[in-house]
Amino acid sequence: MSSELLDALTILEREKGISKEIIIEAIEAALISAYKRNFNQAQNVRVDLNRDTGTMRVFARKDVVDQVFDARLEISEGEAQAIHPNYIVGDIVEMEVTPKDFGRIAAQTAKQVVTQRVREAERGVIYSEFIDREEDIMTGIVQRIDSKFIYVSLGKIEALLPVNEQMPNEQYKPHDRIKVFITKVEKTTKGPQIFVSRTHPGLLKRLFEIEVPEIYDGTVEIKSVAREAGDRSKISVHSENPEVDPVGSCVGPKGQRVQAIVNELKGEKIDIVRWSNDPVEFVANALSPSKVVEVKVNEDDKATTVIVPDYQLSLAIGKRGQNARLAAKLTNWKIDIKSETDAEKLGLLSEPQNTEEADYESADDFQDE
């Protein structure tokens, strides 16, 4: 070994941020194991790496005792005092036992330790970078596909897109560029493992933050998201500024903003509704595009009964109950939908009233523009 090792460690400390002292301590610990393994020694030893010259020496450590039972670990008081007269029982004597060809083993061991530490440091840097990106969106490139995962390159690392997080209406091919939502970053023995999703509601939320400046700067707030990936989604928005139309801001001029998100999600329909802390108004908005006659609220059960015109019943419920299901997820209220005829029979209908059309817009409105 020579000072070249120390120079290399100094460069690593500067470029990789790996503490030189920590690597030296790791090399010393590894050399103890290497010495015992290669020279069939069982005694206690200490390896010293000279911080100035890079040379390494091995010292056997023996306890000074009255009676020696194991010469590999113990030394008598008389033998110890022959080395130095100040040794007494209970002291530890160190004697150099560096083998002649220890330099070759030391160089190989040091290389392995440094390589391992560099790899661990790089993994640590990647983990630190991506743990801060949890619940964020990134653009990746599809690398390969198997029965369990799609492997998406995020630059320094490949992320895993599981089958159940893939959009049912999408076909993925190698070299495709896709936006993914980082759901989980795990630290494993083989390095950080990153899981991503194309179906998570957070992906929709992040896409709106990218496309809508008013959401990014906080003027418009996304209150809730309900999503059935690849088919339809609902998103509720609100602005404290009365001069800002939150729904219109998300839709954009001629629907350009929401259409960009629809294109990214391969045609997934998106309903944008105005949020309200009044459950009557919010539930009515959430059920759009259906018109609502009346909303009756049961605060105790957090449930609502929604009355709609007879001809709007199927629209309010939606295909396979999807519209009602998404509205319930969006509002976090149970929703029971009844037609005007059924409500009248059950005595649920109040006096006839003019209801305002729900404040809502859908990406469908701009598909043909």
Results as ranks from 00 to 15, higher is better:
F39A: 07
F39K: 06
N40H: 11
N40S: 15
A42W: 03
Q43E: 13
Q43C: 07
N44M: 07
V45R: 03
R46C: 00
R46D: 07
R46S: 07
R46Y: 01
V47H: 02
D48W: 02
D48F: 10
D48M: 03
L49G: 03
L49A: 03
L49N: 07
L49F: 00
L49S: 04
N50R: 06
N50A: 05
R51A: 10
D52C: 00
D52N: 15
G54I: 08
T55L: 11
T55G: 05
M56D: 00
R57K: 15
R57G: 04
V58C: 09
A60L: 10
A60W: 04
A60R: 14
R61C: 08
K62E: 05
K62M: 15
D63T: 09
D63A: 12
D63N: 13
D63S: 10
V64G: 05
V65F: 10
V65L: 11
V65I: 10
D66Q: 10
D66I: 00
D66V: 01
V68S: 09
V68M: 10
V68Y: 12
V68D: 13
V68T: 09
F69V: 02
F69E: 14
F69P: 00
D70H: 12
D70M: 03
D70C: 04
D70S: 12
D70V: 08
A71E: 14
A71M: 05
R72L: 09
R72V: 00
L73F: 13
L73C: 00
L73T: 03
E74K: 12
I75F: 01
I75L: 03
S76Y: 12
S76M: 12
S76W: 12
E77M: 12
E79P: 03
E79T: 02
E79D: 15
A80D: 04
A80W: 02
A80N: 05
Q81R: 15
Q81W: 01
Q81A: 02
A82H: 06
A82E: 14
A82F: 04
I83T: 10
I83M: 05
I83Q: 04
H84R: 14
P85K: 13
N86M: 08
Y87H: 09
I88H: 09
I88S: 10
V89I: 14
V89S: 07
G90M: 05
G90W: 03
D91S: 02
D91I: 02
D91L: 01
I92N: 03
V93F: 02
V93A: 02
V93H: 01
V93G: 02
E94S: 09
E94Y: 07
M95V: 14
E96V: 11
E96C: 07
E96I: 08
V97F: 01
V97K: 02
P99H: 04
P99E: 04
P99W: 04
K100N: 12
K100S: 12
K100D: 14
D101P: 01
D101M: 05
F102S: 05
F102M: 06
F102E: 08
G103E: 08
G103W: 00
R104K: 15
R104Y: 14
R104A: 14
A106K: 06
A106L: 07
A106C: 08
A106G: 11
A107I: 09
Q108M: 13
Q108G: 05
T109F: 10
T109G: 10
A110E: 05
A110L: 04
K111R: 13
K111Q: 13
Q112R: 06
Q112N: 12
Q112L: 14
V113E: 01
V114D: 06
V114H: 06
V114W: 12
V114P: 09
